[in-house]
Nucleic acid binder design. Structure first.
Lengths: 337, 337
DNA sequence: ACCTTCAGTTGAAGCGCTTCGACAACCAGA
DNA sequence: TCTGGTTGTCGAAGCGCTTCAACTGAAGGT
């Protein structure tokens, strides 16, 4: 392995000069810089990560903690993770992948060992066990999702309350008065995952304001579960003319079931989905939807956490405003004969 | 931050003794060990990762390189990644997440800087640009997927040739003589991704042996694409009585389209999928399928790469045998009237 | 001509750990 | 009693980098 010292010798300068060329923390004459850079290239030098971390007390790594829930929609997680990784690289950092397996202790381990300079936490619950550790650790951290008490923490998330409200508004404007919501799996609510509860609250509040009748039902991710949920919904509210779907796994099953029961979309029933845009356009009907900006969330989380590492930026709540795109699955409520 | 030296002072021993207690590389009296461990607990000591890496020349990190392809089925990737992360933890290692963004250069960077002790590469192409770098680097590495020339490399993968063969056999035994294959997106083949080509080869070879007529068509991941592909297939081969689906994104669309065109599954047409088991059981028909053992692949990749880090284990090809589970989507070919 | 300033460079002191060789202290065998 | 082999512990030498204080010249001001 080539070391800094060898580069220095090869270029005829001192080790510290090479270090300063690399970090840019002191001015270096153009000639010297040139010479050093040539030596680095010729020798194929790469600074040793461990030595660098030890001397500078910075690892240039950010930890991404991503609990695995099989009942959560995976592609969104994945998209966030990849956005985090690529954005981190553009800040000259790498990403360490932590699963939920290890539990809250992972926070202590990573912080204590100086393995990572900062952390990004995903799948945050309202009363998350990792938060006390995080607060006491005092390391730069950003949450994707919002806990019950976000004081002193920085959080990024889609504004799910507004998202719920927006869906209801759109359908209410089209004249729908009986709306059914196909929510996430029951376990998601039982775990008090913020986004699911907030969406529900947003839906309910706006529905009440607009005088719309709302039926909210959780639903597992299988075709059979969707069939059961749909049957129950139509049984309880035969006049339902619109559906809002949050569990992306059952979007296609729902459309398929509606088709089978002779209901045309959007002539007979409207459907609004809360999902990433690609999912909305690949479904059998191009769906009116509120996008989940997974990439944007990942990107912002990194920007915010890097700012913290640099010592800038206070804690804040970064709520992304929802954006509803009208496509072919929503239309005026059918007129009653 | 608590250091090893402080622990040593607190326990009344030398720094090296503490180090040996931690690593177990020398025998330590029970009494001393006890005392040191108590000090560690009381002070809340965590060894500094950078210092450790510098001194021992091992980072206890393995890099997972996962190129992002939006045309690849994401959940499988995710499942592998999570399996890799948790298995790595059980070997006292962490996982660094690298995307394809950086290209082959990432290999050089990670190896050169000593950031990772080993690498696991996903989404390997037949003629992968990362392989020359990997070979010359001489670091422990394992591929998930198999390149055209795997000499000197260790690879883990499902035996996709056998998988293709198995699907055809199953359907041939049931009497099907006209089988259509819904493949991955065209781009996957154009990129020469090993698994897709090998599956196709396995399908074709076995079909030829068994005297079965096979139609292989790539298909993008949307409902519209599946509709187009299905129409073409039925146009070209009206007598098709069975489908083999490799692109998991269009499984539900296919079932939905078959239903719409009045074809019952499995009475009129049989469907066999190549997908993770959860996908097979959550579809609208419980699918006969060959499982993609994502977790198993991730787990094995880590075991193999850790063995290499320890200096054991030669390079080898770890081909997992396919397992076909008969469910409710395949049955005897309909008799011609 | 002299002093100041500052850009450019350097040597040396660590960062916190691992590991090697040395060395007591002890036990068993002769 | 002495020798030889364990066993348990320690001191010191790095690992490869960053960074601080200090130094050297040359440019600029008076």
């Amino acid at each position: 392995m080539v070391t800094l010292a060898e580069v220095a010798r090869h270029a005829g300068v001192s080790a510290s000069t090479v270090s300063y060329v690399l970090s840019g923390k002191r001015s270096i004459s153009a000639a010297t810089r040139e010479r050093v850079e040539r030596s680095i290239r010729e020798l194929g030098y790469h600074p040793n990560a461990g030595a660098r971390a030890l001397a500078s007390n910075r690892s240039n790594i950010i930890a991404l903690m991503m609990p695995l829930r099989t009942d959560m929609y995976v592609p969104v997680m994945m998209e966030i993770a990849l956005a985090v990784a690529t954005t981190a690289r553009s800040h000259d950092h790498d990403v360490l992948l932590l699963t939920g397996e290890e539990g809250p202790a992972a926070v202590r381990r990573v912080v204590g060992s100086g393995l990572a300079d900062a952390m990004i936490l995903m799948d945050v619950e309202l009363d998350d066990a990792r938060l006390p550790l995080l607060r006491e650790a005092g390391r730069p951290a950003v949450l994707i999702g919002i806990p019950a008490d976000p004081t002193g923490l920085t959080c990024v998330d889609l504004d799910f309350t507004a998202t719920g409200a927006l869906c209801v508004e759109h359908l209410a404007e089209l004249g729908h008065r009986d709306i059914a919501v196909v929510g996430e799996a029951a376990a998601v609510y039982e775990r008090h995952t913020g986004f699911a509860e907030r969406t529900r609250d947003g839906l309910r509040a706006r529905a009440a304001e607009l005088g719309v009748r709302l039926l909210h039902r959780p639903c597992e991710g299988s075709y059979a579960a969707m069939a059961g949920t749909l049957a129950r919904i139509l049984d309880e509210r035969p006049n339902t003319t619109a559906f809002i779907v949050q569990n992306e796994a059952v979007i296609d099953p729902l459309l398929s079931l509606l088709r089978q029961s002779g209901k045309a979309v959007p002539e007979d029933v409207s459907v609004v989905a809360i999902c990433p845009d690609p999912v909305a356009v690949q479904a059998s009907v191009r769906l009116t939807s509120v996008a989940i900006p997974a990439q944007e969330m990942g990107r912002r989380a990194v920007e915010l956490v890097m700012a913290k590492v640099r010592g800038q930026e206070e804690s804040l709540l970064d709520l992304l405003p929802p954006r509803l795109t009208v496509r072919s699955s929503s239309g005026p409520a059918p007129t009653v004969h």
